[in-house]
Design a protein around this nucleic acid. Structure first.
Lengths: 209, 209
DNA sequence: CGGTTTCTTGATTGGGATCAATAGGAGTGG
DNA sequence: CCACTCCTATTGATCCCAATCAAGAAACCG
């Protein structure tokens, strides 16, 4: 948890749902720490292919991907009314030099992002649809838990389409799988309200493959 | 290109093909810069699912993923007789503090890895098999070019299975697609020797879809 | 050489995409 | 309040791409 980084914040910014925090290609000027609400990030390639690359909630850091090239490589969009802490990157850079702790935290955040994406590559490259969705729900669950919310009763902030894009599935497939998990008594889903009824079986789905 | 980082190397290590440079879970002790030869990296998850997450050649940095947790999150294996420069991580950390340039380079390398993986997620999540393979060949091509080798005539150092794992495809699919590209006159492939005959059409494959 | 790994090619299957139609909310304005 | 629209979600029917199973062929290697 980047506690030290967060305390460097020079300001805050409030966004409404659907509003972009920064866009792919914008010059890197700040790093952002999510204070409240949630975000998704999107990449687009030369041919117009788009993909959701991540979902972010309170405490997560946004903008790290821009450090290498000096401009953001994704677009970050608020999924609901949200609040971020803004830290000018110039300040981060300077303080990282002066405070080893900040430097280490920044590197850890960057490296952690790499590890997270390795896991995502594994998911996209070698799991079946049902396993992907199970992994997604369990991941959300543990992130809510770490923030003190219920790990088994939460609201999805993103659409089926967002989830599908993130998991490399069609939105219809996501919807179908939710229905199936519900029939099997593993989860209960009404719209975006999710209740995990049998976490053990949800885990077990990952092993069937 | 991490020229500054490379110059910090405290030693070298030679590996034969199939030998592991470090393994997933090993404590992070050094960063490695490939001097010659090539490597692949592998992740494994709890259920034994494995996936190739990257291929590395001269000038590429290995071990960055370990910075966050203090231990490597992938296994790096030489694909052939290879040589790496070894830089103890403790040294990197200290020098990064003293030399802003080193700090910036390290952060740029980390961030660049994130961007590279975003592209990989896009590939795995939203491209068809043929497009994936085309993108793979073009990526290799440009990396060879940047190193002064021919961008249109090179040897693959990895097996069809490695390629398939990396691209989220079965090895048979990789083989079939190579054959098809050859029939279409886009590439010429004899075993691992690849010649790109029509780069424009190879690019065009990416746009079809 | 014989054994092993790697690669190719064929036949079949199946998982998930796609197309299509309907239904459910949420927000707006009458 | 209802009627209207827009967006999101569900469900069904069909199709196709790539996985899987299977059998050889080719290259590599002790």
């Amino acid at each position: 948890m980047p506690s030290r980084l967060e305390s460097l914040a020079q300001g805050r910014r409030r966004l409404r749902g659907g509003e972009a925090l920064f866009s792919c290609g914008d010059p890197l000027c700040s790093l952002y720490s999510v204070c409240g609400g949630s975000f998704k990030t999107n990449t687009v390639d030369g041919e117009g292919r788009a993909q959701v690359t991540g979902f972010f909630m309170a405490g997560d850091l946004l903008g790290l991907d821009g450090i290498g090239s000096g401009s953001y490589s994704v677009t970050a969009m608020a999924l609901e009314e949200s609040l971020v802490c803004v830290t000018p990157y110039a300040l981060v850079e300077r303080l990282a030099r002066e405070m080893p702790e900040v430097q280490r935290e920044l590197q850890a955040a960057l490296s952690g992002e790499i590890v997270r994406e390795h896991a995502m590559m594994l998911l996209l490259g070698s799991m079946r649809a049902e396993q992907r969705l199970a992994a997604f729900l369990l991941n959300l669950s543990s992130r809510f838990a770490r923030r003190g919310y219920s790990p088994s009763d939460f609201y999805l902030r993103m659409t089926r389409e967002d989830i599908g894009s993130y998991l490399g599935l069609a939105l219809e497939t996501v919807s179908r799988l939710f229905s199936r998990l519900q029939v099997q008594g593993i989860v209960e889903i009404r719209q975006r309200h999710v209740r995990l009824l049998d976490v053990a079986r949800l885990h077990a789905l990952g092993r069937t493959g």
